[in-house]
Design a protein around this nucleic acid. Structure first.
Lengths: 141, 141
DNA sequence: TAAACTAATTATAATGATTATAAAGAAGTA
DNA sequence: TACTTCTTTATAATCATTATAATTAGTTTA
């Protein structure tokens, strides 16, 4: 399953003229396999063993490359550092107020909200962002 | 109208044992009158004339105090600095991808989404966050 | 009202995430 | 193989935010 995502991602990159380097391959692979929405630093640390000489800048640079290619979404919450999420299909996030864990969930798109917003404000709507906050089962017990 | 908001806010603060200083008064007043969702630095600069000796730390400290009191919401987007929004009644934001302008709009709460999220993930839901992105009428023309 | 207690402000330094820069290295191409 | 261009690395710079310590100012109570 995740193999397919990786292959598709590599094709997407190649088509937009981006070179596939071992570092890029590894960052993508880690992002896809990770269910944890990691920060740039977490990615950096996770790949330290395989790439002892890799620079943090490489991680940031490539996350930006992936984001521009539409492969990765950057999630910004109140805390200090961004988290990165490999884009598979549309899903929303629910975030635990206690431990910060981010869990995916699916919900039909909110077109009606987009329509209303467009109607009221006169904006031409492109997209929306929705997050739900609460307490995860582990922290609740 | 905004006078009422200010008075209510001051009462709320007093009730939670927070002292009303001239700086706090000014920051609140500016936040309420502003339709621009300012950054901490914008608040600091706006009050520079009236409070030449005020420290940036004071702005940050008090924004945190207001946030803890539930008077102010912190908005974090991709860009570097947070924006702060005085809480009146529930409303959502639509953000222009071109110029970054943030406009308020109202929409009935999305309880059904919260319910579904809770059901699927087992979380105890507290709140949610929704933002719509697009192009504002000015930038579209 | 004035002393006393405590919280708030100020000035400054520190932190920490992210970005910029320049040199070295590697991928793709003729 | 030599060339061009993109990528990585190492490091320094930037910038928002927070921590610290000393000073100042609200608030309380006698």
């Amino acid at each position: 399953m995740s193999e397919v995502f990786l292959k598709d991602a590599l094709v997407t990159l190649k088509e937009s003229g981006v070179r596939i380097t071992p570092q890029r391959h590894a960052i993508l692979e880690f992002l896809i396999s990770s269910e944890q929405h990691p920060t740039a630093d977490e990615i950096y640390k996770a790949l330290e063993a395989d790439f002892p000489n890799m620079s943090v800048a490489t991680v940031y640079n490539n996350l930006r490359v992936f984001r521009n290619a539409g492969l990765v979404k950057e999630l910004t919450y109140g805390d200090s550092s961004s988290r990165f999420d490999f884009v598979t299909h549309d899903h929303y996030h629910i975030i635990c107020d206690v431990c910060g864990r981010i869990v995916d969930f699916h919900h039909p798109g909110l077109e009606e909200v987009e329509h209303l917003a467009s109607h009221v404000t006169g904006f031409k709507v492109n997209s929306h962002r929705l997050e739900v906050y609460g307490t995860c089962p582990e922290c609740a017990s």
